[in-house]
């Protein structure tokens, strides 16, 4: 029986991992950058990343995602099997990772792990989810493709996206988002 309380072994030096870096990191960054260049917000974010020397790296992981790790560094997470990953999704994630680094400088503070900061986290997530709708909307206009719209539906945010696209107010979008994440 596997034992959850067993001690870790002590056979010599710990087998430290050399890197979680994705083997196709360069290609993923190049191709997602090329896609971002197709839309106005993508170009703005890429320029910002360059001006501020943001470091964007790609590590392998279970599913496409992004994580801020310091004031100027973020990781894009991409499954090792790239056949299973849509490049449009990686471009979206690339854009959002840059935006997450930008957030504090435009008055969107980062929440700490503290229940009293729940409202800060809510605002941070709402803001980045609306930015996701912004980027997807621009891709939809340029590519005439619903690929990313299908992705936002999969994430459970299709109503927010439709609301954003139909020009609903920030207050209306906040209400939609609250219901989606059951924050009401």
């Amino acid at each position: 029986m596997n034992d959850v309380f067993k001690e870790f072994g002590s056979s010599g030096a710990a087998p430290a991992v050399s890197s979680y870096g994705h083997p196709l990191s360069d290609a993923i960054l190049k191709e997602s950058t090329d896609l971002l260049k197709l839309i106005p917000e993508g170009r703005r974010l890429l320029t910002l990343a360059k001006e501020r020397n943001y470091k964007i790296e790609v590590i392998s992981g279970r599913e496409p995602d992004f994580r801020y790790v310091s004031e100027n560094t973020a990781y894009l997470i991409c499954p090792l099997t790239t056949k299973a990953v849509d490049l449009d999704v990686m471009a979206l994630i690339h854009g959002l990772a840059i935006y997450e680094l930008e957030q504090p400088s435009i008055g969107i503070p980062r929440a700490a792990f503290d229940p009293s900061q729940k409202h800060i986290l809510f605002n941070q997530l709402l803001d980045i989810t609306i930015k996701m709708c912004h980027i997807i909307g621009e891709f939809e206009d340029v590519n005439k493709s619903t690929k990313l719209v299908d992705y936002v539906a999969k994430l459970g945010h299709i109503e927010l996206y439709r609301g954003y696209r139909s020009g609903k107010s920030k207050e209306d979008l906040t209400n939609i988002y609250s219901v989606i994440i059951k924050a009401v």
Binding site: F8, A14, P15, A16, V17, S18, S19, Y20, G21, E57, I59, V69, S70, T73, Y75
Partner: peptide, 10 residues
């Protein structure tokens, strides 16, 4: 054991 040199900030 799992810390990588390249991504020590993780």
């Amino acid at each position: 054991r799992v810390k990588s040199a390249a991504e020590a900030m993780l």
